[in-house]
Design a protein around this nucleic acid. Structure first.
Length: 525
RNA sequence: GGGCCGGUAGCUCAACGGUUAGAGCCGACCGCUCAUAACGGUCUGGUUGGGGGUUCGAUUCCCUCCCGGCCUACCA
């Protein structure tokens, strides 16, 4: 069996402390779309996600709820699994950091780094705010009552000393900079690369990577009073997924990952710590860190106090899964922050999906059903206009690839919908409905061309709106094994005479309901 | 405070320093009737956040201020 090129892609692993929110959903949808795109483009795709289930906060939250940390982790993991299904964005592989195999992987990379003499034991000390659970630099502190010191946010701090293992991050600055230099697209988009380069150039401090103050974590090999502190544990999930430390594992061929898709807040951990750990352990680095922005509800960061927290499950069921996927991937330029609101979703979904694409399919295919005995017409000779729209549709694979190369998902969708818009113009100006008596053959040609354009559009839309695109492919008679990007183009055009199923609407129009607006907008009655 | 990024039409975004700053959506009008009241066409809409500067010419480069976001060593 000829080996297809592999493509390994991951989401960040959500902290198992809380329910899935819109940000998790967005990241999962985007990553799923990229994974599907690559799969349809012929790659052997490994789509990894996971759960970060360790740490003090897990212990605290569990204690507050009267359950064990493991029970909390199980509950949250089930919710995220459900989210994957609800978004039609299920990963191939889920790594939970409480799994024994993940302990093995984390301890293995730790040991490798230790053998490299990059880990040492020392005292971690500093000004610690119990309330904020964070350390602060001396020069950040502000004076408090009675000569005490406060954090920049005004909470009291105390001097704490704790034995901790450290990673020699300070030794990796030059090598990291050299890597960024040699791999210009290691961090995309560029603005995040700039940020990271500037940060590294200022000099790196060694990193505290263990704790003795709690025990809900991966034990440090050979010193079990320490547990690993966040990042060694969490980042290593990507290796665990590929079978590490067993480099003969079947999935090890997927490493190094092609893309770690992450939110902009954790860029540093993925583009500084993680490569440094991997260099230290003698492992290959991921090809790219792909950074996306944040989502805002009506311009406001979602927060419990503002009361604009939207449950992704609600969004998906209210607007539809494909509709939700389409909105976020089209409306938000990938890599930038984005906004969502009830009105924006309804506008976008009705205009692009129901009206432009859905209605084009419906009007053209129902003409085929009524006038052509339900068979794909046999095209006659082609006019310049015919050729122009066909060429556009057939070029979609290349154009989309170009956009996706830079993870510009919104541009890929823009290219596809540009063809949809032109197809509507084509259809309107050719007036097939007026040709019934005068020139039925010409009518057939127009309808065939429209169907063929729809076929290509649907193939390319699959990564983004998989269910609806699949339905559309059904309607244009596309065989199940003829739906990958290799089938975009003239070589696989619809055969004249092919029996087509009865057309049915693909996208319902969103009609305002009384209760409407789960995103906090006002429903019009 | 420091670092990075953003601010362009009501909304979401474009615009190697170079004609009159563009596109989609929304809105108004016209056309069409195959279609999910959908589609097509025309039009309205701008002190490019403010103020300085460089230049023959600035949305673009520089300075400064204002606003917003992320990071500043555990929330996408």
């Amino acid at each position: 069996m000829a080996a297809r090129p592999t493509f390994c892609i991951s989401t960040a692993i959500p902290y198992a402390n809380g329910r899935p929110h819109i940000g998790h959903a967005y990241e999962r949808i985007a990553t799923d779309a990229i994974a599907r795109f690559q799969r349809l483009d012929g790659r052997d795709v490994f789509f990894v996600t996971g759960m970060d289930e360790h740490g003090l906060k897990m212990q605290q939250t569990a204690a507050r709820e009267g359950i064990t940390p493991q029970e909390l982790a199980d509950r949250t993991a089930a919710q995220f699994l459900e989210m994957g299904d609800a978004l039609n964005a299920r990963a191939n592989h889920v790594v939970r950091t409480t799994e024994p195999r993940h302990y093995a992987a984390s301890q293995a990379i730790w040991t490798k780094m230790q053998e490299r003499d990059d880990i040492y034991l020392a005292n971690y000390s500093g000004w610690y705010s119990v309330r904020e659970e964070a350390y602060f630099d001396e020069n950040e502190l502000t004076p408090g009552h009675d000569g005490a010191k406060n954090s920049p946010n005004g909470t009291p701090v105390e001097w704490v000393e704790e034995e901790s293992y450290f990673f020699r991050l300070s030794a990796y600055g030059d090598r990291l900079l050299a890597h960024y230099e040699a791999n210009a697209d290691f961090i995309v988009p560029d603005k995040y690369r700039n940020e990271i380069v500037a940060f590294v150039k200022r000099g790196l401090q060694d990193l505290s990577i263990s704790r003795t103050t709690f025990n809900w974590g991966v034990p440090v090999p050979g010193d079990y009073k320490h547990v690993m502190y966040v990042w060694v544990d969490a980042l290593t999930n990507y290796l665990t997924a590929c079978g590490y430390p067993d480099e003969n594992a079947p999935d090890w061929r997927y490493w190094p990952a092609n893309a770690h898709v992450i939110g902009k807040d954790i860029t540093r951990f993925h583009s500084i710590y993680w490569p440094a750990f991997l260099m230290s352990a003698g492992l290959e680095l991921p090809k790219q860190i792909v950074v996306h922005g944040f989502l805002f509800n009506r311009g406001e960061k979602m927060s419990k106090s503002v009361g604009n927290v939207i449950d992704p499950f609600t969004l998906a069921s209210h607007y539809g899964v494909d509709q939700m996927r389409y909105f976020f991937l089209r409306e938000v330029p990938f890599g930038q922050d984005g906004n969502y609101s009830h009105e924006a979703i309804v506008n976008r979904v009705n205009a692009d999906l129901a009206n432009d694409l859905g209605n084009l399919a419906q009007r053209s295919l129902s003409m085929v059903a009524k006038n052509c005995e339900g068979r794909a017409p046999i095209p006659g000779s082609l006019t310049e206009a015919d050729k122009a729209i066909l060429d556009q549709a057939w070029a979609l694979a290349d154009r989309s690839r170009a956009a996706m190369k830079d993870y510009a998902l919104h541009h890929a969708l823009g290219e596809i919908w540009k063809v949809v818009a032109d197809a509507n113009r084509y259809f309107a100006s050719e007036e097939p409905w007026a040709k019934g008596k005068s020139d039925p053959e010409r009518r057939g040609t127009i309808l065939w061309i429209t169907a063929e354009v729809l076929r290509n559009v649907a193939i390319m839309a699959q990564p983004f709106i998989p269910t609806a695109a699949g339905k559309l492919l059904d309607l244009v008679g596309s065989a199940n094994d003829a739906r990958d990007f290799a089938h975009v183009g003239a070589a696989h055009k619809i055969e004249g005479g092919l029996m087509l199923p009865a057309p049915a609407p693909i996208f319902p129009r969103y009609v305002e309901a009384e209760e409407g607006a789960p995103t906090g907008g006002k429903a019009k009655s």
